[in-house]
Design a protein around this nucleic acid. Structure first.
Lengths: 345, 345
DNA sequence: AGTCTTGTGGGTAACGTTTTACAGAAATGT
DNA sequence: ACATTTCTGTAAAACGTTACCCACAAGACT
């Protein structure tokens, strides 16, 4: 009664060819929709493929040409914003033969290098790097090897295409919103950054620049007040604590990300202050957390879906023509006002 | 001045062999720490590898044996619980030569099939399927082809190893906690499920069973009250609305997941009720959202990190010996009481 | 001195696909 | 009728590794 499961070698192109009584070349041509195959051959081969349940071996394909795989490096699974980007990506690639595989790189530069190398070793047809923190030289080295799109990082390179949100405008959106409400003491919690590359290219740094510019533009230069921590809940908590402890307390806090706002709200509640009556809080990213009604956090929407979709399109274009000049797509964020911001009392 | 980037073929094992003046076989042996290579040969080859910056081509390796790649299928990037599992996984695999690649399968059975096939096509050395909804037959077909560990799904198969949390106990934990506080009208929001396979194996279904069992065990059979929606924020919102609209309102709601609790809290706030004064709410998963102090949601911690670490270990064992009998690891959840649950007034 | 081991290295055939080059047949032009 | 072109299909050589098998040398036993 025991079924001694047969070793059952996987069906290969050779099996298909034999079954259809044609050459392997012919089968290969049909698979790739290559030129020079008659309708009769088409049907014959397709039928054999169906009957045998053949699937091409992507590994073997990779040896000669494409792997039909696109590698996406993401820095932080936890940030729900990346999920939106991913949706845009996968929807855009749904009709193609490409499969998306994600490489998690949560632990900084070394991990990013490991993941990018791993993807290159696996002959990915293209790579999308989301908000990488690696130095520019590394990004360019990657892009020199494989078609690459860098997402969520400013500064353009002749080596790769980029898609990013206009964080300068985004920062200004928040400042203007708060200033319009009548705030002057508008503080900002930023991600501490010292590396000059990143200072010029990372979204967090640009947002902080946007904040400063907008403050000056509104004549609020004297009220510029920054806590420099990290883009984490903990960072928001500490940053808000710092700001609240200052001699003159801000009436509004612009947190550089929703998670940061989350920590800030925590510190504010702990200090016995109410939002927005005592202090207004705005975040950035428009995550589901911000939309959650009991929180109702004013935030900035980054159009993650469009970012992803555009990145996918750029990548396909570049795979098709590796020598076309690089493009930089910049998308405009929008403010989503909610109940966490109000006029100061 | 223009640097016409040289085509720069990638360094192969042949280049290394030539540079070290040995055979490719020798280099291959060194790479794989195979038997039969002298210390002298070791150093000679390793030096050549370093000098040339050689990296093995994983695609080519895949043609002969391993790809050193482990595929992880995840159903939903957004659920932060999966991030914990992933941490456990990657930490466990950090010292090995394996690289983890994630396959996102957010849209149900068809997408899961696509991802699993894609991973098999790419000769993954092993696969970890996280909370798959595919029918058991499909899982077994996958496991017949490649070493597989199924995570977060009950019911064991001779074809694959499993790691899951004891959701039966988890459901009971919540019920007992609420009953101990003095609640009797304890309602539950579950994920609607009809498929018999899933009814027997999916965590959500088991949690609901745990709820019923515990209610009966505490003599609260008459108070069993279930809203059957989905494990989403929307589902929680609708489920809570249903429960609140019933003739006798529950004094406590056990939401099957934190996201569900999020939606429930929303509906409760909208109904003008306070938590926990008017109604207690408990979630499941112990996400950062639950830990967030202004929310402070009582929840159940699933030890996601341990789940991931165990899954990785089981997979490595199975890769080492495909014929060893399958193992089922079941981990115990713990209750994390917070401010969202209190005695009824 | 001969026969076994043992240790060390290399030659070579796979693995499954694509690509290049080419041959024969059919269609077209003179 | 012949020469030319176009269309179909095939054979064979890659692609970069690994695994199997064999050869050789140096000791270690009879």
């Amino acid at each position: 009664m025991e079924k001694p499961s047969p070793p059952s070698r996987r069906i290969t192109i050779v099996d298909v060819a034999r079954h259809a009584q044609v050459s392997t070349t012919a089968v290969s041509k049909v698979l790739r929709n290559a030129y020079g195959v008659s309708p009769r051959m088409q049907t014959k081969v397709r039928q054999a493929i169906a009957e045998l349940g053949y699937r091409p071996n992507a590994t073997a394909r990779g040896m000669r040409g494409q792997t039909y795989t696109i590698g996406v490096m993401l820095p932080n699974i936890r940030n729900p914003f990346f999920a939106q980007i991913l949706d845009g990506l996968t929807d855009q690639l749904a009709d193609t033969d490409y499969q998306v595989l994600l490489g998690p790189a949560c632990n900084g530069e070394a991990e990013e290098a490991r993941v990018t190398h791993a993807m290159i070793d696996r002959s990915m047809d293209g790579m999308i790097l989301i908000a990488p923190i690696s130095p520019r030289t590394h990004l360019e080295a990657v892009a020199a090897t494989v078609p690459t799109v860098v997402v969520g990082r400013h500064g353009h390179s002749p080596a790769y295409d980029t898609v990013a949100d206009d964080d300068l405008t985004g920062g200004a959106l928040v400042v203007n919103h708060l200033a319009d409400l009548g705030h002057r003491r508008i503080a900002h919690i930023e991600h501490h950054e010292t590396d000059p590359d990143r200072l010029a290219e990372m979204p967090n740094a640009i947002r902080a620049v946007g904040y400063r510019h907008a403050m000056r533009a509104r004549g609020l230069a004297d009220y510029i007040d920054i806590a420099s921590t990290t883009y984490t809940q903990e960072g928001g908590y500490l940053g808000a604590q710092q700001l609240l402890a200052r001699p003159t307390r801000p009436t509004a806090i612009f947190a550089g990300a929703d998670i940061v706002a989350m920590g800030a709200l925590d510190a504010i509640a702990e200090a016995g202050l109410r939002v927005p009556e005592d202090i207004s809080v705005a975040g950035y990213d428009n995550t589901t957390f911000a939309a959650f009604r009991p929180i109702s956090l004013t935030s900035v929407d980054q159009a993650g879906y469009q970012i992803g979709a555009n990145a996918a399109r750029l990548l396909l274009d570049r795979i098709a023509d590796r020598d076309r000049p690089t493009a930089q797509i910049k998308l405009s964020p929008t403010l989503v006002p909610r109940r966490s911001t109000a006029s100061p009392q």
